[in-house]
Structure formats: C-alpha cells, structure tokens
Design a binder for these strands. Structure first.
Length: 930
RNA sequence: GGGCCCAUAGCUCAGUGGUAGAGUGCCUCCUUUGCAAGGAGGAUGCCCUGGGUUCAAAUCCCAGUGGGUCCA
C-alpha cells in the first residue's frame, strides 16, 4: 500500500489544509481538516453519530436526495444519464445483476472500445446485491436493492493519441475529491467532520487508488480511481497479492449510496424507516403490530444500538443480540419477540423493491439465471409475509414499490407475481403431502428422517429443511439436519466441468484486411466479383476427411454465419475452375469461404450464392422480427428474445414469458404477425451511433446480443427496431406468410416458437393437411369430422376391450365347468386339469382361475405365441405353482415364476409344448412330494 | 447451461419383473332423515408416448413429451 502513498498526496488536500493521519484504532491512513482527530471515523472505530441527530440541516426523501445529487453534478457540467436495467446480463455475460454504476460501462467503455454516452456523466443506478440477502432487515443498514449515485469521467493518456474511443483527460483525483467536498457543502454538512480514508481498490482484473468518504460514522461515498490492470510484471502489488501496472485509460468511478445519504439526512434508527416510511407503516398495520409507548422506546433504543454494532456476519448476530439485551436490561427473548416481526417487515419492504426492479426490467421468474434469482427473492418474501402475518397479496406489495419507481408495466408485474405465488403455493402443497408421507413412514419405524431424504426433498422438490421439521413435529418424528446441510446439497452437484476448445489463431489471418461486406449494400445481390487475398489449407476438415480450403476475398456477398442466420452457400468461379462454397465464417472482420478446392492468390473470381437458400433465410429472418414483435404485442412488453435460429424450412425463437402459450394465444400471435406482413411496410436498415440509438430506443434494441463498435446496424420492421446483423427482405410483404408450427417450453419461463415463412409456411401447412386428409381417408369421413369420429372410435374401442375381457371371463368359466377338453389327473388328494389352449395370456389366466375356483389345480399351456404356461392352485393344496411353471418352462427353453398359488411362464420352443404338457403329471407329483 | 425428481382411477397417491390397488369422489340400494352420517354393492384405467431387454414390463434400459426442483 505504501507504494500508492504518493497517489494520495493531492494538491487539493494541500490547498484546503488537510492533514494525513493514521487511525489510532485500525491503523488506516486518512485525510482530514480536523487536526485534532485521532480515528478514521468509520465503524467500528467510531459509532454512528447521526441517529436522532441528522447530519444535514434538511431532511430528504429518497426522491429529493436523488434529485439533489444529480442536479448538483448537472450544474457542474456533468450530463445526466438515464439508469440502465438491473439485469446486467442484457449487455454483458460475466454477471447477472447490476451491482454498481460502473457495471453500465463495462467492458466496452472502460476498455476504450466504445465511447461513453457522455463524458463526464452523472447517474443514479439501481443495483441489486444478493449477497446481502441474509442481513437485510436485521442490521438496520443492509438493503438488497439500492441506488448508487455516481459521477464518472473517462480519461485516456495524451500520448496514446486517438487509439481509444475517447482521448485526453476530463478530470482526475483532485477534482473528484473537490466535487465530493462541494457536494457535502451544498447539503449543509460540517466539512470538519468528513474523513477521506486511503483504501486501494481491486476488482475484476482492475485496480487503483481509492478513497472512502466517512461522515458522522457513516461511509457515504467511495471514490475509485481505476487506473491499473493485472500484469505479472507490474510495478504495483495490491492487497489481493497480485501485481498491477498502469493502463492507457484511467477512469473516475464514484459511488454515493442514495439510501445512506437519505438516512443520514433523517437520522432514523434504521435505514428502512428513512427509505420506505409509507410501506413500513402499511405493513405494520397489515400485520397488526402495535407497540405500547414503552415498547416503542425499547425498539428505538435497540435499533440505535444495532446500528452501532458491526454485525456483518450471521454468527455475530446472536452475540450482538445478547449484548443489546444486556445493555437495555431486558431479557433476550423479550427483545426478540419485539424485534423479529419488525425485521421481517423491513426485509419485506426491501425485497418488494428488489422484485419491482427485477420484474419491471423484464426479468421473468424461471429456473435459470436472473429468473432464478427473482424466484428465490419472491419465495423468500412470501415466506416472510406468512411468517409475520402480512396478509396483503404479494402482487399488491410489489406494486406499491413499482408505482413508486414509476414503472409502466405494472399490470404485467402483478400478473407475474400472482402466477409465481400460485406456483409456489402448489409446490408447497405438493411438498407438504410428500413430507407428511415420509414423516408418517419414519414415525412408524421410530426413526428420524435421514439426511439423504432431506437432501432429496430440498434438491428435487424445493422443500426447506425447516419446513420438514415443522411438519414432522406433528407426527412426533425427529429430523436429522446436519449443520453443513447446504454443502451436502452442493456436493451432489459436483460434476465434470466442460472444457473449452481452443482454436489456433493464424497469424496470417490477423494481417489480412477486413473483408468488405457487400451483402449489406445489396441484400438481394447474388453475383459479384472479387480478388482472392489468401487461401488457407485445412487438412482433413471435410466430412470424409478430405482437405478443405478457407478462401479470403477482398469483398463478398456471402453472408457468414451469425446472429442465428446460417451461412450462405454457392460457388466461386475463375476462368479455369469453379469451387463450391459449403460454409462461411467471420473472424475479426475477415470472412472465410470454406471451399472444396484450391484457388490461387490474386485470382479474380466470380462469386455466386445459392439464391433460393438465401431468399428463404431472408424471409425467415425478417419473419423472426415480426414474430417477436407480435409476441410482445400479444403477451406483453416483458417479452424478450432468449435465443433464435433461422433455417430453410423453419426457424425458431425462444421468448421469455411466465406462462405456457396455449393454442389460442399462439393463433393470436400468428394473426398479428401476418397482419404486419399484409401491411407490406418497408424494412429499413441504418447505422446510427450506438448511444444515440440506445437513447432513442432503449436497451430493447439488443434482443439477440450486443455488438461492439461506435455504430450499430439497426433494422426497422414496422414498429419494431432491433440491432441486427442479418439479411432482410425489402418489404414485410415479401415474407409471404408466417405459420407458427409449434410452441414448447424449453425452460421454465422460456417458450420456443417454431415457425415457417413464405413457401416453407405453405409446405408446412400442406404437410399437416396431408396428415389430416389421410386420417380422414382412413376413417372414411370428411376432415372436419375427424375429431368427432376419432373420439367415437376410441370410445368404441375401449368398450369392446371391456366386452372382450368379459367374454373371456365367461368363456373361461364355461370351459372350466364344462370340462372335457382337458386331461384330468389325480395329484394327492386333489384333481389337476392339464389342458392345451392356444390363446393369449389373459385367456389362460381366466381359465386357470376359473378351474382353481372349482378346487382343481389348473395347468394350461398355449402355443399361440411361443409357448406359455399358467398354473393356478386352489387354496389349501400343497403344490407350489411357481415351481411347476419353472419346471415346465425349462422344457421349452424359457423360465417363469410367480406366487405359490398362481404362476406364469413360457419359452420360445412352441413345438416342445405338447411334450412338456405330457410330462406335467410327473412334474406335479414331484413338486408335491418335495 | 448443468444436475436431480416425478408421470398409474375424476382427485391424492401406493404398487420395484409374475392376476393393476388404497383413500377420497361418483353411481345404485339399505338404515336413518331436518341436515349430517352409517351399512352393502358397483363402475372406474391406451399404468404419458415410442423403441429396447425378457418366457413375461406399470415395474428395468434408451429416446421423446409434459411437469417440478436445485445449482452456476
């Protein structure tokens, strides 16, 4: 850290008369105007000083505080930026949720590939930190959802010129600290009370000096000066033990906690009371929580103490509670009875805000990714509500927050919450029954429910161990919950990790110029001329191991595989030869044409792409945009594309939605999509600046992934606008027609729509029509009558099955009582009937049973399908049917068995059946004697 | 993206290779009758679909479909 010491010697500190001191408690270095100060000011070195004694002259609500911050920086030449979604995985694939304002600009802006939307800028970014979930409500200061107010400046060293998307210095450390000071000043804070602690920052491969800003015991801001990157040969060793070196870009990354600032301005005992006063009042009232004046005072004092204590760890919670109780001179249980309901209520308010952010930004609960996080939060919130006795519907509670956050899709949010609560209820109900059965079972055995059953219940059925304990208690059953339960569950999930294939990078490839993409200039073009720049030999890459070639041209009409659109095919022709193009890929802007034969470097070639294939792909691509657009219109604004694949005969898109799409809904989507086709509007492409595009259309542009670069290609189809690199038809009418073939649920919360466009749609319709016509033909009715007729046939078929069953029974009885056909022999005191009857197993069984009912041993053999035997023995006769069958079956090369009074068996050698039956009397004798 | 679990009577579920079951609901009758209840009898079923193994599959194996759940 000492290596960074110089980094903190700011001119600003000097001019303002700051002194650098070492905290007498924790040893951290800090800067202050107060020369007499000894500690850094941050808990646990010091306590909160703002509770019941607000830090600013005026109280602020959340909204007022946000506005105060943003307008302060606006007045100081920062541009105000609209917040990004909380679902960060919409623009980056390394994280799920937005956890800080800087996430908005990673990785493209921070690495200098893409310019920032404004420079410098200010923003208040909603964030969600799931890792704090257990502390929410309990510590008085943790929230899962919060807004990070920030100002950012993106700088690049002068000497690197215009290599990056921004250049030069906007401002750096001195100005950043000065802004912080002046903002405090504008709020009416006492500047003597502020300390700036030196606290270098490391994260995500970057690092830099950073400063924590403490005021009245609360950390109100962090000023990060991101300027280093991981580098084994770097000059600086940071606190993570790795070495870092300076980057060409350096970025001001600040974070001011909106909730903290609001809290400090109000001086309430907990942050929740400052942030959600109305909601907490509502919840208290709804849960029927009333406190006497004395209790009220106790709670107030307890909250104050809790706020002072450092209880980040769950284990410390118990101890902290003990200390608080002692200090207040009440019993721990009394304190818990008072505080626990309040803690639940604080958590509910916070979780509802989290849910409002998540669902409002279009996350659909599911078993994957952010959807799963949303489901976890929702279920946890529901449990908290049940626990504390809040009976207001959850969708209403979430809506209260959604309304405050000014989301427009509130109806959808409520719908999603209702659906999800209902799903949870069903899961609990089913799980409850399952646990009851288990509890009963183990209660009878007098054993506790073992751990592996618990793991199974949790892992496969989503039932928490505490719920098992609760239900088991009703049956007096113990439950064996190990302390490391969740790690036992985790160990079940250990498995082989897929390893990534590494491809050899060709240096020659890197030196080639980017191929000119003619397919954008003329999407209908199929013929072109080009010069061969290079040819790569690919040995053994062909389907049958033959050598293939990757041809690089200066320009091409061939569309390389991308954005779910397969590559074009066609031919490249010179005066001497013609080669087939079977695949086209793009690598770093260089387009590779996979061919079956060699071309010479410098050759001039005529390219020709498979026109019909391309047309079909274009129709399907435009149709994809139409179907997504139609799905949004029918299902709701939350609908997002979750993957797509275009094809020749059909295409599919996966769409996020919280319910199954039934046939009626499917037809509605199909209708809307086809209406757009019939409108026959033009399909337009443009290449606007990415930030202008984002500003105008929002993040919903990026349905199929986020492209890099300053300018992005937009495709306008009707009202729909998407960032897209694919080829499209000129007018929607050129799609012809769209037929949705199928909908399936590919994951929870993700529906797959398979559809065909143009001639492929007609073909698909014809296929189903043919199937129907053939079915109608077989039934000999008109196609419209197929369902009714099929129903009638099915019913009749069932009826007849029952009749046949009946008749066989009667036949068997008649045979048994009529006797005659079978050979009767005496076995001990009883009579055995040995009979050959070439019929199926059911019939043999019925006959044998009927004989046994008359008190006779039945040995029936059939040669209908191989050789089969049934042996039935009446009650009280000492012959083991299983053994008899076993013996007989062996003679026909098979086996058999069953209970002593009824057995069946057989074997493949039907011609030995009579022989076996002839020996049956002997077998019976033997078995009886044995 | 990966793992695990489930699919049998209208409903809730048993059945672990050998004659498909229980509880509940349904129908009929009896007792009683204000309602509820009780007794006797009866009907329930492509054991999700398709393949495989086997003399024999609801049962074992594979694939599919539908649902549930946990993890990243």
């Amino acid at each position: 850290m000492s290596e960074l010491e110089e980094e903190y010697r700011l001119d600003y500190f000097e001019e303002e008369g700051f002194v650098r001191k070492e905290c007498t408690d924790c040893g951290d270095f800090f800067w202050t105007r107060d020369t007499g100060r000894e500690t850094c000011g941050e808990p646990p070195c010091e306590n909160y000083q703002f509770i019941d004694d607000p830090g600013f002259p005026d109280e602020y609500t959340l909204e007022e505080m946000r506005e105060a911050f943003l307008s302060f920086f606006e007045e100081n030449d920062h541009e105000r930026i609209e917040p990004y979604p909380v679902a960060a995985n919409r623009w980056r694939d390394d994280v799920l949720l937005t956890q800080a304002s800087i996430y908005d600009f990673q990785p493209l802006v921070t690495s200098g590939q893409t310019p920032p939307p404004a420079n410098p800028l200010t923003i208040s970014q909603p964030c969600i930190r799931m890792q704090d979930i257990d502390n929410v409500g309990k510590t008085g200061r943790h929230t899962m959802a919060f807004e990070m107010m920030a100002h950012h400046a993106f700088n690049a060293r002068e000497e690197v010129g215009d290599e990056y998307a921004y250049s030069g210095e906007v401002y750096w450390k001195d100005e950043t600290v000065e802004y912080c000071d002046r903002f405090f000043e504008s709020m009416g804070a006492d500047l003597e009370d502020i300390t700036y602690i030196e606290d270098p920052w490391v994260g995500g491969g970057n690092a830099g000096p950073a400063i924590e800003v403490i005021y009245k015991g609360a950390e109100l801001a962090t000023l990060v000066f991101m300027s280093m990157e991981a580098d084994p040969d770097g000059d600086y060793e940071m606190k993570d033990g790795n070495r870092y070196s300076k980057m060409d870009t350096y970025i001001v990354d600040t974070g001011y906690g909106l909730e903290r600032w609001t809290w400090v301005s109000q001086g309430t005992p907990t942050v929740y009371e400052a942030v959600y006063p109305e909601m907490i009042a509502f919840l208290k009232d709804n849960a029927g929580i009333e406190h006497s004046e004395e209790e009220e005072k106790l709670v107030h004092r307890a909250s104050k103490l809790a706020g002072h204590m450092d209880i980040d760890e769950a284990e410390d919670m118990e101890a902290a509670r003990d200390n608080i109780a002692r200090e207040l001179d009440v019993s721990k249980s009394r304190l818990e009875d008072l505080l626990e309901p309040l803690e639940d209520i604080y958590a509910i308010a916070d979780h509802c805000r989290t849910l409002a952010y998540m669902l409002g930004d279009g996350i659909v609960p599911s078993n994957v990714a952010t959807g799963y996080l949303a489901r976890m939060v929702l279920r946890r919130t529901k449990r908290l509500c049940d626990n504390v006795g809040v009976d207001a519907p959850l969708d209403e509670l979430v809506d209260m927050q959604a309304e405050r956050l000014e989301y427009e899709n509130r109806d959808t949010i409520r719908d999603i919450v209702r659906t999800e609560v209902e799903k949870y209820r069903e899961t609990l109900e089913q799980g409850g029954r399952r646990v009851e059965r288990l509890a009963k079972e183990y209660a009878e055995k007098g054993q506790p429910i073992p751990t592996d059953e618990l793991v199974e219940l949790y892992d496969s059925h989503g039932i928490q161990p505490d719920m098992v304990e609760e239900i088991a208690a009703d049956f007096g059953t113990e439950v064996d919950v190990p302390d490391d339960f969740y790690s036992v569950v985790a160990s079940r999930h250990d498995g082989g990790q897929a390893f990534e294939e590494e491809e050899d990078e060709d240096d020659r490839l890197a030196d080639l110029p980017k191929t000119e993409r003619q397919y954008y200039e003329d999407q209908y073009g199929t013929d072109f001329e080009a010069v061969v720049l290079d040819v790569f030999e690919r040995e053994g890459e062909g389907d049958d191991g033959e050598t293939m070639y990757d041809v690089v041209l200066d320009q091409t009409m061939f569309y390389p595989e991308g954005g779910g659109q397969p590559a074009d095919r066609g031919t490249l022709t010179t005066d001497d030869t013609s080669v087939k193009v079977s695949d086209v890929q793009i690598e770093d802007g260089v387009i590779l044409h996979r061919t079956d034969d060699e071309l010479g470097k410098g050759d001039i070639v005529r390219g020709k792409i498979d026109r019909e294939r391309r047309r079909r792909l274009m129709r399907h691509h435009t149709a994809t945009h139409l179907v997504v657009h139609a799905a949004r219109e029918v299902l709701g604004e939350h609908v997002r594309q979750a993957g797509a694949q275009k094809g020749i005969d059909s295409s599919r898109i996966d769409v996020r939605h919280y319910e199954r799409i039934d046939r009626e809904t499917k037809e509605k989507i199909e209708m809307v999509a086809n209406e757009l086709v019939m409108e026959n509007t033009t399909v337009q492409q443009e290449w606007p600046n990415r930030h202008e595009a984002e500003e105008e259309y929002g993040f919903d542009l990026y349905q199929g992934g986020i492209p890099a670069g300053q300018n992005i290609r937009l495709i306008h189809v009707s009202e729909d606008v998407q960032a897209c690199g694919g080829t499209h038809v000129r007018r929607t009418g050129d799609v012809g027609t769209i037929k949705i073939l199928n909908t399936e649920r590919v994951q929870d919360g993700v529906e797959r729509l398979t559809f065909a466009a143009g001639d492929a749609a007609i073909e698909a319709t014809q296929r189903t029509e043919t199937a129907l016509a053939e079915a109608a033909d077989i039934l000999d009715v008109a196609p419209e009558e197929v369902p009714e007729t099929a129903q009638r046939f099915f019913d009749e078929w069932k009826d007849r099955g029952k009749q046949i069953e009946d008749l066989k029974e009667q036949l068997a009885e008649a045979r048994a009582s009529g006797g005659g056909s079978g050979e009767e022999v005496e076995v001990g005191d009883s009579t055995a009937v040995i009979q050959r009857l070439d019929a199926d197993m059911d019939e043999l069984r019925a006959t044998a049973n009927a004989l046994a009912d008359e008190g006779k041993i039945a040995v029936i053999g059939s040669g209908a399908d191989g050789a089969t035997f049934v042996v039935a023995v009446p009650d009280g006769v000492g012959v083991n049917a299983g053994e008899v069958v076993g013996e007989l079956a062996r003679k026909v090369g098979g086996g058999g068995g069953g209970p002593p009074d009824f057995a069946q068996g057989g074997g493949p050698d039907a011609e030995k059946l009579d022989e076996a039956l002839a020996e049956a009397p002997e077998v019976l004798q033997q078995v009886q004697n044995a």
